[in-house]
Structure formats: structure tokens, C-alpha cells
């Protein structure tokens, strides 16, 4: 799920960046530091949308660096148990397949792939129905449901299923 939230971060800035561009420097550094990172609590920071407020700077003893508390608005992405996601398959093997929804990696075990789909090894490993009408292989887009998540300090892992109504392949590049 995506959220638009306000987060705060203490930014350290070297004095050479001071001057009339201080604020711009601060923002660009913030973007570089924060966008694309993942915190267990909030999920992945997708993009910074605005700066709420930059607090008073505090000079660090001995170094000359100045710390600014910055409040910023950002879009975060955090998967939840029960959530339906669309993801791209990255790897298929006999245990199941791995898919990515943006930065999140999701594992779908073959227990959670419909029983009528069977694993086919070969040059391009895939799961296929007996009549061959539906095929999951690398780069296939699937709709899946998250049934479990594990949140580390810096990473999020998910287990998904496609064994349910309206889940499964939504666009198969091989069929186009």
C-alpha cells in the first residue's frame, strides 16, 4: 500500500554548502540519502514530495558540520498481509517463483500455485496449465496476494499466493 506521510530526518551539511543555495543543497542531499531506502517501520521511500519545514541548524562541536532537522512529505510503499499486488516474475524454479513489485521481493511457493499448473523445466522454466493456455515464466506479470511479511531494519520480504479467485497471470509477454 502507498502512504503519503511526513517524516523527519536530521541532515548534516558541510559548511561549503552554506549560502543562498543552502536550502536547495539540503533538499537535494535529502533526496539522495532517502529516496529508494527502506525502513522496516515505514517501508520503501518512493519519492519526496515536499518539505514541510527546516528547523534551526546546530553546529557540531569540533567538525563545523551543521545539523538541520528536516520535516518532509514523502510517498512510501509498504506491503501488508492480505494485500493484493501486481508483480513481475523474476525467477521460476521447481520450488515456486519469485516476483518483484517495485523494490519488494515476493516468493510464491508451488504449494500456493494452483494445482493444475505444473512445473516445466527446460531453457525457460515455467509453470503451465495442462492445456497450455496459462503460463508463468520470467517477466510474466501476475496478480498475487501477500500472506506473510517479514520486516527487517532495512529490508522487507514477502510470501505470496496466486491460489485464489482473480489471482494469477494478468499479462504474459510470451503470448503477445
Amino acid at each position: 500500500m502507498f502512504f503519503h506521510i511526513v517524516l523527519e530526518r536530521n541532515m548534516q551539511l558541510h559548511p561549503r554548502h552554506f549560502g543562498r543555495n543552502l536550502r536547495e543543497n539540503l533538499v537535494s542531499k535529502l533526496m539522495k540519502d532517502v529516496e529508494g531506502t527502506c525502513s522496516g517501520r515505514h517501508g520503501f521511500v518512493v519519492a519526496i514530495t515536499g518539505i514541510e519545514n527546516v528547523g534551526k541548524g546546530l553546529i557540531r562541536d569540533g567538525t563545523g558540520f551543521v545539523t538541520f532537522p528536516v520535516k518532509y512529505q514523502c510517498v512510501v510503499f509498504r506491503p501488508f498481509k492480505g494485500e493484493i499486488l501486481e508483480a513481475v516474475v523474476t525467477m521460476v524454479n521447481k520450488m515456486g517463483f519469485f516476483a518483484e513489485a517495485g523494490p519488494v521481493q515476493i516468493f510464491v511457493s508451488n504449494h500456493l500455485i494452483p494445482d493444475d499448473m505444473e512445473f516445466q523445466s527446460g531453457d525457460i522454466p515455467n509453470y503451465t496449465t495442462s492445456d497450455g493456455s496459462v503460463k508463468i515464466q520470467k517477466d510474466t506479470e501476475v496478480r498475487l496476494k501477500i500472506i506473510g511479511t517479514r520486516v527487517d531494519a532495512t529490508e522487507i520480504f514477502c510470501i505470496g499466493t496466486i491460489k485464489d479467485d482473480f489471482l494469477g497471470v494478468i499479462n504474459d509477454p510470451a503470448a503477445v
Binding site: F107, I147, T149, R150, C158
Partner: peptide, 13 residues
């Protein structure tokens, strides 16, 4: 079986 310590069937940690 498990992936990153999550059960691959029930999704529990």
C-alpha cells in the same frame, strides 16, 4: 520450507 524465515505456505515468521 521457508524464505527469509517466513514459512512458504502460511507466511508466518
Amino acid at each position: 520450507g521457508s524464505y527469509k524465515n517466513l514459512c512458504m505456505i502460511c507466511g508466518k515468521e
